Amino acid sequence: MIRRTPLALSALFAFGLAGTAQAAGTLHFANWSDYFPPELLKKFEQDTGIKATLDAYESNETLLAKLKAGGGAYDVVVPSDSFIQIMVQDGLLQPFDTSKLPNLKNLKANFQHLGFDPEHAYSVPYLWGTTGYSYDSQKVPGGALEESWKPFFEPPAELKGKVVALNSIEDLYIAASHYLGIDQCTEDPKDAKKVQDLLLAQKPMLAMYSSDGTIERMAAGEVVMHQQWNGAYHRAHAQRASLVYVYPKEGVHLFIDNLAIPKDASNVAEAHTFINWMMQPENIAAASNFAKYNNAVEGSDAFMDKELFDDPAINTPQDKLARLKTFELCSPKALALRSKVWTKLKK
């Protein structure tokens, strides 16, 4: 098996620059918190003449609610793979005019036909990564934890109040499903009840549910264990060397976040200009260097920091590749069960 770089999943899954014409206009961009370099937005303004603003949200669920309330406030958003078809089915995204996206040709071959949007009619990849968890080796019993979801879902008594879960039913439910050996898209209420029971038993051990501040919380030693995205871990580890990223043996969710245009976007031409601009290798590489996640654009590795290639949390070791689990589209019945579990958990 060929060793993969931070730009490819050789076990799982054309450098071309298109000039961006000078334009006048406005772009309202919404993205996950701390997931886009401010200086890159300034470069976009300089390159295109388009004035750009950036808003932030903490989860796919928050973005979905914002779009349902009226997506006209945003011209480009960043939903994850699992939410693309939900938003399309709800009429919340508009199809691309692909004639305005010549840089689609820059996508790596393994990202050109993704199951959730095979023809990139509504989305193109932004960054991708994994959702595991991290812990502080100086603060856990024995200095090391099993490479399993067990220490996270059933933490030692000493860690009560020192563990944080992401504030997302998708991230929690999928991880719990992997740990229990249950299909994440199960339509069986009994299976969903097993996930619910696990999460309810874990809840008293948690300090909080939070998808914001994961980097700062772990870097400062405020908590000992945190469900975390690998890029966030990388940034925390740079500040606290005792942190360890875990690829649980039961399975690790691999996510792809995507650029998309809301149905009610006010500045559609500018949105296309921005998305096409982001598919230039040096631009998407700047986002990778900032957020510490991989991207899907051919040629961007020439502009990326070497440290991304050296971190096993980013450059998954060969013996961990089989643990990576890609997106599965669940039925409405399965998603309804998932929603019921979340409602019960957050009461």
Rank of each mutant, 00 (worst) to 15 (best):
Q94A: 14
C185V: 12
V164A: 11
A285R: 00
K190F: 04
F309V: 12
D311L: 05
K203Q: 13
G143I: 09
A8Q: 13
L198W: 03
K320I: 01
A52P: 00
Q138D: 15
Y245H: 08
P312S: 09
I86H: 05
Y133L: 10
L145T: 02
K292D: 06
L259A: 14
K68R: 15
E45L: 03
E187D: 14
E154H: 13
A291T: 13
L329W: 09
S80K: 04
D311F: 04
V140E: 05
E307C: 12
L41D: 05
P312Q: 04
I256K: 02
D55L: 12
Q280Y: 05
S33E: 14
Y173N: 04
K150A: 14
K194V: 04
Q85D: 13
K66I: 07
K203T: 09
S59N: 08
L7G: 08
K42P: 05
A219P: 12
A165V: 02
R3D: 14
R3E: 15
L67R: 05
K306M: 05
F255V: 10
Q138N: 15
K340D: 14
Q89I: 06
K43N: 11
A334C: 12
D197H: 07
S10K: 13
D301T: 07
P6D: 02
F290P: 01
Q318P: 06
G142K: 01
Y126W: 14
K100S: 11
V341H: 05
L54D: 09
H120L: 10
N267I: 04
L127V: 15
I182H: 04
A334V: 08
F255N: 07
A157F: 04
H237V: 08
S123A: 15
C185F: 08
S148A: 09
K162Y: 03
V76Y: 00
E216Y: 10
E282R: 10
L27H: 05
N315M: 08
L27I: 10
V164T: 13
V195F: 06
Y57K: 02
Q228W: 01
F13A: 15
P204H: 02
V223C: 06
N294A: 14
T131E: 13
L243T: 02
V195K: 02
L324V: 11
V76G: 01
N315A: 12
F303I: 08
L206F: 06
Y209W: 13
Y35A: 15
K105F: 09
I284K: 01
V77S: 02
R235G: 01
T214C: 13
Y245I: 07
G142W: 00
A207W: 06
N110I: 11
A144L: 11
V223Y: 09
E282A: 12
A192M: 03
M218F: 07
E282V: 09
Q89P: 02
E270M: 09
Q22D: 11
H28Q: 14
K340F: 07
L308Y: 06
A69E: 12
R3F: 12
A286E: 08
N106P: 01
S134Q: 14
I261G: 00
G25R: 08
S99N: 13
A14V: 13
E298A: 13
E154Q: 15
L17G: 12
Y133A: 08
P156N: 07
